[in-house]
Design a protein around this nucleic acid. Structure first.
Length: 535
RNA sequence: GCGUCUGUAGUUCAACUGGAUAGAACGACGGACUUCGGAUCCGUAGGUUAGGGGUUCGAUUCCUCUCAGGCGUGCCA
């Protein structure tokens, strides 16, 4: 049997280490698209061709001979300059045993590093809409995957509870309340409309009586309304299984603004002009310098963000990840420059932008605006399609491409939904286990004899650790969804061409199926979805 | 105008960050169990990777120009 030195290493890493030890340099290890080229391959002979002044074909031929003594491989072949590696049955069986022993923790990493992940941070002036839910689900998926890999990650929500939008919330509730009381009101250009404002006005009326709708009470209505909205937002997030570790308030953070300002001043990051205070953000590549304190001495929004990032950096993480809507992208440079002026390294900050979600309803474009109140509520979509489908949909799209879909499409719960497809594969495996009369011990102790099909399926199932890692490091959660889909697909195909229960190979095929089920279960759980054992 | 993201099959997306014949899914069309769940499987059609030029053994990937679209370009948040 092959001994596994490093349980937590994924298979590609194991092969990489073997090659790097051999060649004393970093080597590209890839997984060929076609299984006839082996499980792994490397084009290393091409890069050696120049310095050795020999053809890649010849180099590869020679190299292939040097890998005969590795029991990880059953065969190492040179084809057209590529070096192809075929994993041995011994190795794959050992690795499978490891996977089954690890169970739910197969692929878990031992990465170190403290990461602060800030996401959603939607203004508490209305419920979450479908656009917010994209960043929320993407962020939460990253969080789950990162934690699985061993990183210490905190999920943080920044509450914009200061500034004009909160005043506007108070005013909007106030005006709506006036109208409820039969008064004629004229709404200004900018205010929040939508049913939730009317609902809050009604609630305020029953809770506080008519006296709340006096002009002096707008501030009270604002902070009361803000609290209401945060409760609503937390519920919205909870409905898809998202929980934050920390909520920070802009209002609280702002108390530290003077400290940040002093720091900026002492490092020459600001200057006065036209009675305003400017941040020298051009020094770090911004298009122009930015006002941080207005002529009337009221700080701008950026000031709050500077204090916030100052606060974050003082908490001393290794990395700060912000997930913002694409409309904030102009902010990156100015925040980075502020971080530099505060004496910190802006390279530790990584901003991921999620592009817009353009919704259609029956083919018609759906304009989303909180102000106008005709946005699609996250809550409504969750009610219609369920948390699982929504989570899968957003996790399966790269954040940096704008996404357009029809609400009507998502409300369809037919078999085009990949969640059903993947769950079905998982449920099928459990169905087989229920049908079988074998003991678990006998299944686990059997040895999987590999033919081409079995090997392909087993290899794919065992790639989970590598996929999870890759998915996190590239910040591309869709690598995980794609993987699960193809694993399910591969299993369905296998299932249809093999009888399993009550055959001579029952034990080993069930063992193979168990490895598949384990990877599906883990993968789904990292997406925040619970695998079903029956449907 | 500038910044930024994007452009790959009818549609939605891949392509391991420079590697082998550009792959899947959905949709379309045609098939498959008296075997364990047909919510499945198998097959067929569909491509000048937006376009030109460059870098090299090799480009969907890197550079450059052009074209098209989204977002941004408040002392709003």
């Amino acid at each position: 049997m092959v001994k596994l030195k490093k349980r937590f290493h994924n298979m590609r890493k194991i092969v990489e280490e073997i090659l790097e030890e051999k060649f004393q340099k970093s080597v590209v290890v890839e997984i060929p698209k076609e299984s006839k080229f082996g499980e792994f391959s490397t084009p290393v002979a091409f890069s050696l061709a120049k310095e050795l002044r020999k053809s890649p074909m010849i180099i590869a031929e020679e190299l292939a001979k040097e890998f005969t003594e590795f029991n990880e491989f059953s065969k190492v072949e040179a084809v057209k300059g590529y070096l192809n590696f075929y994993l041995s049955e011994d190795f794959l069986n050992s690795y499978s045993d490891g996977a089954l022993v690890d169970g739910d923790r197969f692929g878990e990493g031992n990465e170190s590093g403290k990461i602060l992940l800030e996401f959603v941070s939607a203004n508490p002036t209305g419920p979450l809409h479908i656009g917010h839910s994209r960043g929320a689900i993407y962020g939460d998926t990253l969080l789950k995957i990162g934690k699985y890999l061993g990183y210490e990650i905190e999920a943080e929500y920044y509450i914009n509870d200061a500034g004009r939008q909160i005043d506007l919330l108070g005013l909007s509730i106030y005006l709506s309340g006036k109208e409820l009381l039969g008064k004629t009101v004229t709404y200004p250009e900018e205010y929040y409309r939508g049913d939730y404002i009317v609902d809050m006005a009604k609630e305020a009326l029953t809770e506080f009586g008519e006296k709340i709708f006096r002009e002096e009470s707008i501030g009270d209505l604002a902070s009361w309304g803000k609290e209401k909205m945060m409760v609503e937002i937390v519920q919205n997030l909870d409905s898809v299984g998202i929980k934050f570790d920390v909520f920070v308030s802009e209002r609280d953070i702002f108390r530290e603004w003077e400290d940040s300002l002093k720091e900026l001043e002492s490092r020459g990051g600001v200057y006065k002009e036209d009675g305003k205070l400017w941040l020298k953000s051009t020094q770090f590549g911004d298009e122009k310098d930015r006002v941080i304190v207005r002529e009337n001495s009221v700080p701008t929004y950026l000031a709050g963000d500077i204090a916030y990032h100052h606060n974050k950096y003082n908490r001393d993480y290794d990395k700060y990840i912000n997930i913002w809507g694409a409309d904030h992208h102009g902010y990156i440079k100015r925040v980075e420059s502020a971080i530099e002026f505060l004496g910190y390294n802006s390279k530790q900050l990584e901003v991921i932008l999620t592009q817009m979600v353009a919704l259609l309803k029956d083919g018609e474009p759906y304009k989303m605006s909180k102000r106008a109140g005709n946005f699609v509520l996250m809550r409504d979509v969750v009610d219609e399609v369920g948390a699982d489908a929504l989570r899968y949909t957003f996790a399966s799209k790269t954040p940096d491409t704008s996404l357009q879909f029809d609400v009507a499409e998502l409300t369809k719960q037919d078999n085009s939904n990949p969640i059903y497809y993947i769950n079905y594969a998982h449920a099928r495996i459990h169905s087989l286990l229920r049908k079988s009369s074998l003991l678990e011990k006998d299944i686990l102790q059997s040895r999987i004899e590999l033919d081409a099909k079995r090997k392909e399926l087993l290899f794919l199932a065992l790639r989970l650790p590598e996929i999870v890692r890759d998915s996190f490091e590239s910040r591309q959660t869709q690598k995980l969804t794609d993987y699960l889909h193809s694993l399910a697909s591969n299993f369905h195909s296998f299932y249809n061409s093999n009888k399993i229960v009550e055959t001579e190979s029952e034990a080993q095929l069930l063992k193979l199926s168990l490895v598949v089920a384990n990877s599906i279960k883990i993968g789904l759980s990292l997406l925040g979805i619970e695998a079903k054992e029956s449907m």
